[in-house]
């Protein structure tokens, strides 16, 4: 059996190998601050261009134009948490939403979620995505910020199995294993991130114990 510290080390290593950006936060509030700041400075980063700057067909250009201001989607937070993140966003002139994500399919800046489990051996997040808003927030966004409570970290997929089965027993269920950003190597086997989903995955390990 791995100690918690070893497990944490493995998780950080493995998530890093698939180019996830891993940080640690002491509170959820700290994660909110991180997220708002990230969104605020986002356009500074030239890597995060998601295609709208390129030569697209007319219908796709039109879809790009639908997105105007900066938007963060954070479905699944409780009222208090949502208000707390919204205050930070409003300060910076950014919009925070928790539903109606189908109106934002052209693009979102950040999808923010709190994950249900982590699997250290592969640097994987397990996210119960039965809510359609959660699925869309984590797929339509350019950056996915995922908070993982450290108490939810398991060493292997087998160790997480009883809890995964528990999630699946609440029908219907849509469960996602997420390991790094959306990727492809379909053109000349060259790795490229963000082919459909997030271009970046930020994992915030929340020291909740």
């Amino acid at each position: 059996m791995q100690t918690n510290q070893e497990m944490l080390g493995t998780f950080i290593d493995k998530a890093g190998l698939v180019s996830a950006k891993v940080s640690r936060v002491k509170t959820l509030e700290e994660a909110f601050v991180y997220t708002a700041a990230l969104c605020d400075t986002k356009e500074m980063c030239p890597l995060l261009v998601s295609g709208c700057e390129l030569n697209l067909s007319e219908p796709s250009m039109q879809l790009c134009r639908e997105k105007t201001g900066k938007i963060i989607a954070a479905p699944g937070l409780d009222k208090e948490q949502f208000a707390s993140l919204r205050a930070l966003c409003e300060d910076k002139g950014m919009e925070l939403i928790e539903d109606g994500l189908r109106r934002h399919l052209g693009g979102l800046d950040i999808g923010f979620t709190v994950c249900d489990l982590g699997i250290a051996e592969t640097g994987t997040l397990v996210l119960n995505s039965s809510s359609e808003e959660v699925r869309l927030a984590t797929m339509v966004c350019e950056t996915h910020v995922a908070v993982l409570p450290e108490s939810k970290l398991r060493a292997t997929s087998y160790d997480a199995e009883p809890e995964i089965l528990e999630f699946m027993s609440s029908i219907p269920n849509y469960l996602s294993f997420i390991t790094g950003a959306s990727r492809t190597a379909d053109i000349e086997r060259v790795l490229a991130l963000g082919v459909h989903g997030p271009l970046e995955l930020h994992i915030l390990l929340w020291e909740d114990k």
Partner: peptide, 26 residues
């Protein structure tokens, strides 16, 4: 497909696909 001249840079081609296919999903 896009009726626009495309660069052969792989990263850019992947992004073009991202945007073109996004419209298809919708």
């Amino acid at each position: 497909v896009t009726k626009k001249q495309q660069d052969s840079d792989i990263e850019k081609l992947v992004k073009v696909a991202r945007r073109e296919l996004r419209a298809k999903y919708i």
